[in-house]
Amino acid sequence: MIHFVLLISRQGKVRLTKWYSPYTQKERSKVIRELSGMILNRGPKLCNFVEWRGLKAVYKRYASLYFCMCIDQEDNELEVLEIIHHYVEILDRYFGSVCELDLIFNFHKAYYILDELLIAGELQESSKKTVARLIAAQDSLVETAKEQASSISNIIAQATK
């Protein structure tokens, strides 16, 4: 299973963290510190796996961002690379050639997409299209709710004038 997902910028700033195994707040920051130290220092041609405390961190760099997923010893590392790529492609499709700033200002969207892709540290959906469709449907639910709210508040605002 995937124990956690980290997005770390080239400068070591955390852009997203998702924990599927219980880690306390203290452990979380320690994990991030240790792993980002190991991953950011690795050269570009080296393999994408780092062994760490009996687990394996699989990472891949996309522009200025490192996507990292931590898995069990016996899991398939190559597949996890493919999952990371899958996620990036969905993000790319959603934001339209995604960049780091998109993920900073819309971090919650990145989480929503991740939640459509993974649950309990396991893969949920192998179709990018399905994920995009589900996210779009939920976004439109939010939009309609907002419109309703604003129209009602308009009505009230006008009524109280």
């Binding site: 219980p22 880690y23 919650h108 929503y112 939920q138």
Partner: peptide
């Protein structure tokens, strides 16, 4: 509402853990 629940559940998963 759905928008409140959506952000609420996200916060729950982020800020809390099972313990």
């Amino acid at each position: 509402g759905f928008p409140e629940k959506r952000i609420g559940y996200l916060g729950l998963m982020l800020l809390l853990d099972e313990r």
